[in-house]
Nucleic acid binder design. Structure first.
Lengths: 251, 251
DNA sequence: TGTACATCAGTGAACGCGCGTTCACTGATGTAC
DNA sequence: TGTACATCAGTGAACGCGCGTTCACTGATGTAC
């Protein structure tokens, strides 16, 4: 029932934006408005549930896109190893494991970027709820913090795997100003491998760029500017892969 | 009076977001709600006026930031020319004009980026109105298109001046997919100089990155991640200047 | 097998509020002769 | 200098609507003995 309420609320989000109406939801479900209060203590609590769900949903989308790409990589690696029968057995296993574990960083980044975009296109009201203007008079409670970082942790893993696989161009040109170093060191701790702060900074720039493009596309800033949205998005994601310093495995 | 209504409406935008109430505005002004209708035919018309004002306001902020930097550059160029008395007179004039006309592309870009951010921090509700989630049930009329592009035209001028001044690294590595070429050619026509499509693409990426960062900062996505906002913004804008290919004049 | 009781999902009326928009109006100010 | 008229900013009441939240309640279902 809780799920049914949230599903209806999500539908209304599309029409009403963040000023979601409990009465509209209850009408939708053929109930009386006060019945909602058996499941949610207030409108804000329902909103919080929707926000957490949205963060988890986009996080899952990112994880799934990454996992699919990793699975493809495993298959490809297996195929490569099987085809090349002359390879020493232990080396073959090592290659298979390495590629299976991390796949191609560039392809993983592209898969995640496209996965996030696909999710955003299919769930625009929810995207707007979490990445658009804040809901007036609503303050997100602490429970939203965890789910909020889920998608970006996928990015962190790609960075880490690229680094340990030697597929991250990690030059320290353009050193960071002192004021930022400690801050970015803290961010770097979310990456399960040792990546230099300047590279962390570039990844963060690419991440904000990704959401900047999505917001522009979904909120209408590309109208009359960019029509071939998918092609543009793909091109731009590829350029940002190079910007971050991700290198392809297969060559 | 129209201005007073808009001023009050802007104040209410902060508290209520896009679901602005005519009655709240009229109360604010000590009028009866129906009095508003002498000045705006409907709530949507008031919203449209606010949106157009906001676009013009951020556009002016960008123009002013660029102009200030250009003025500084003029002063600097005059000083340079005055100091170096051995310079041939015609060359001196040419340099002065060139630098006065276009200044330093990197500094102009930084000035505009910071100018846009300063505006956004001072006018967060208006920023949210134009770059945040679309207002439910509201469709922006065609009159908003012109003002909407004002800020980005400043960017176009910087690009053009950098190009004609030989301060734009315009390598055509990473050729564009065919599907995008014609589209970006159309965008390139907004730049009053001949700039290659791949560079236009990079500038567009940097532009979306700029707004991506602002939205993240203003809408709370940087909470618990980045605290030294100004330093981070500056660092990231400098990196993006290099990414676009802007080069400094003074060296 | 039958009775008594507790649980619990949902009802319906009401509270006090706010909203956009309409319409006929008042009363001050300016204009024409 | 004085009168008649038009303009126009703002009023006040009303329409019909929607909202979040509360509260005492009904009536079905499940549980215990």
């Amino acid at each position: 029932m809780t799920e049914e309420i949230k599903a209806s609320a999500r539908r209304h989000l599309a029409a009403d934006g963040a000023n979601l109406s409990l009465r509209a939801v209850s009408r939708d479900l053929g109930m009386v408005s006060s019945a909602i209060y058996r499941y949610f203590a207030s409108r804000d609590e329902l909103l919080t549930a929707l926000i957490i769900d949205a963060y988890n949903s986009i996080g899952e989308a990112a994880e799934a896109a990454d996992a699919t790409e990793a699975a493809d990589a495993t298959v490809a690696a297996d195929a490569t190893v099987a085809a090349d029968a002359t390879v020493d057995a232990t080396v073959a296993v090592a290659v298979a494991v390495a590629v299976a574990d991390r796949g191609d960083p560039v392809r993983r980044w592209l898969a995640v970027a496209h996965g996030v975009r696909t999710w955003a296109l299919a769930h625009t009201p929810e995207y707007a709820l979490i990445y658009g203007s804040p809901v007036p008079g609503y303050a997100a409670p602490a429970d939203t913090i965890g789910p909020a970082s889920r998608a970006s942790l996928v990015m962190c893993r790609i960075l880490a795997d690229a680094q340990t696989g030697g597929l991250l161009r990690d030059d320290s040109q353009a050193p960071l100003p002192a004021a930022l170093r400690s801050e970015l060191k803290r961010v770097a701790e979310l990456v399960p491998a040792s990546v230099s702060e300047p590279t962390i900074a570039r990844a963060l720039i690419a991440w904000t760029q990704l959401f900047g493009t999505l917001s522009f596309e979904l909120f209408g800033q590309f109208n009359n500017i960019i029509d071939t949205r998918e092609a543009w998005f793909d091109h731009q994601a590829r350029i940002m892969a190079a910007f971050i310093g991700l290198r392809s495995a297969h060559l």
